[in-house]
Simulated assay, not measured.
Amino acid sequence: MSKIWSGSRRLRIVAGALAVATAIGVTAACSDDASSDSGTVYFGVSGPRTGNSAEYGRLWQQGFDLALDEINAAGGIDGRKVELKWEDSQSDPKQTVPIATKFVDDKSVIAELGDFSSPASIAASPIYNRGKLVQYGFTNSAVEFTKAGDYSWSPSITLDVYQERNAEWVSKKAKKVSVVYLETDWGKQAFQFFQQFAKQKGIEIAYSSPILPDSTDVKPILIKGREANPEAFVHLGYGPDGALVVKQLRDVGFAGQFFGGQNTPQFISLAGAAADGDIVNGVFSPADPDPRIQDFVGKFRKKFGVDPGDFNVYAYDALHVLVQAAKKGGATREGILNGLRTEKQFTGIGLGTFAFDQETRRPKGVSPRELVLKDGKFVPTGNR
């Protein structure tokens, strides 16, 4: 989502965390007595509240808060109030493992939301699956994430689908491009998919290079990319590094089309005028005239004084989906799983109306939309 499989951790860190998860997971399994018939219903959240990805946790919190207002005002789940139990993971695989154990052992938690990055989520997946606690990785686009087991679910569009659409939209603007991508597992996989689909669509990648997630000066790389005479520049990364790239691209004299960054307030603010006309993958725009979306935008503006973006919507939709699943199957761990398996029509702001494919545990028939940055706001181009 949007570059949804986030994670700046290398595979070796994930592998180490998986080893820990396997050891802990043996003792983490528990019976499904996570909820009684009365009292508050709790969902666990594993996500970044501090660290490099803290901005995403802040956006999640806003989406969750608005969803909680609506859910509890409407009677919660069968008259029971809904609340969240947050744990700050910093989106670090080494921290998500003990958090998963804590949630599995906490019988009041009936499902978990998160983590932000796919590597962080994947590291904890064995524990959630052994503990029979649904892990709802609502921003995890890694194809591998839901393969962990029956309790790993995600509404996120997968990375291959995002990059196929990205290449399609790039091909309408340019046939020769330079590409920069994050020096992370996610960045490498995103580039592999983009490279594959670019070739299919007749796009020449004249220059490509990884960039470090904590880079502050990428001008030497961008100069080489500019000297390849591309018609457009493609960035595969997140908001902060996308803003750095587009600003420094303009500094080194490239005035052509830019594809990259994210639909977040942080990217728009950091990039400024340099990103005007930028095109991104997204799922949501506050400029969408759909009455249901405008109703959501109005409520969000009233509560927070700003327009919502993709990551607000991801969190808002995720909590509503799990509540709907609990109403369908029961406010227990197995009830959540049964609800996700049997509900035929979930409704979200970002994905619209959808159902889950029971084999992949991903939404069926959904796709990203093309957004363009105009006057400081991402608006739909009409392509979906």
Rank of each mutant, 00 (worst) to 15 (best):
E183V: 00
S154L: 04
D185V: 15
N166I: 05
A124G: 13
G149K: 01
K132N: 13
S154D: 05
W186F: 14
G187H: 12
V180C: 09
S118I: 08
S178L: 03
K172E: 14
Y136A: 14
L159G: 13
E168M: 11
E164M: 06
Q135S: 11
N140C: 07
G187N: 10
K147V: 08
G149W: 02
K176V: 07
Y162F: 01
S156T: 15
N129I: 00
E183A: 15
Y162R: 04
N129V: 09
E183C: 00
K147N: 12
V177Y: 05
Y162P: 01
R130Y: 11
F145D: 01
S121Q: 07
A174R: 03
T158F: 02
L182E: 14
S141L: 06
F138T: 15
D160S: 08
A124W: 00
E144Q: 06
G187R: 06
A123G: 11
A124E: 05
E144C: 03
I122N: 09
T146D: 00
V143E: 14
A167W: 06
A142S: 15
Y136R: 15
G149F: 03
T158Q: 10
S152K: 03
N129E: 08
L182T: 04
A124D: 04
T146H: 02
V143D: 05
N140Q: 06
A167D: 07
D150P: 09
G149S: 00
G149M: 02
A167K: 13
S121R: 02
A124S: 15
N166H: 06
I127G: 00
G187W: 06
R130T: 13
I122K: 11
A120G: 12
W153R: 11
K175F: 06
K172C: 00
Y181P: 00
T184Y: 07
S156L: 01
Q163C: 01
A174D: 05
T146L: 02
Y128C: 08
S152W: 01
V179E: 06
S171T: 02
I157Y: 00
G149Q: 04
V143I: 11
V179R: 00
T158P: 03
E144P: 01
V170R: 08
D185M: 13
L133M: 15
S154V: 14
Y136G: 10
A124M: 01
P126T: 12
W153E: 07
L159F: 01
K176E: 05
K176R: 15
S152Y: 02
I122A: 13
Y136S: 14
S125E: 14
Y181H: 10
F138W: 12
P126N: 07
A124V: 05
Q135G: 11
I127F: 04
D150F: 04
K132G: 01
I157H: 03
S156R: 03
L159R: 09
T146A: 07
